[in-house]
Amino acid sequence: MIVGLFNYWIVILMMMLGFYVVIAANNLIKKVIGLNIFQTSVFILYISIGKISGGTAPILTEGVEIYANPLPQVLILTAIVVGVATTALGLALIVRIKEAYDTIEEDEIYLQDRTL
């Protein structure tokens, strides 16, 4: 139960950790990190789906007949690119927020918006 589904337990653990950090963190960069962990857990989920017991990496080689399913890996390459773009954009926004508010703590930004 635990050993057989080891990957999926890790996925759930990471997903919940990442999600919690996104919600609970006050620092915007920590939020982005949490978002990354959340997304990474989904990448592992996809890769685990594509695993076939006894199969090797999906590269044509002599004497190997069982391969892992390459499709989820390709999909996740795309999703990783999306994740990188999201992170980059998030960090760029944080840089500009820092310039505009002089802080990247959510509660301080909230206070500044309130007092105006």
């Binding site: 996104v22 915007l28 978002l35 959340f38 997304q39 999201t86 998030g90 918006d113």
Partner: peptide, 20 residues
């Protein structure tokens, strides 16, 4: 306004969670 930045960031966080 500078609030556009925080609005965009909030949308980024929620939108990414939705998309994920």
């Amino acid at each position: 306004e500078r609030r556009a930045l925080t609005a965009a960031f909030q949308y980024l966080i929620m939108g990414t969670i939705g998309a994920t």
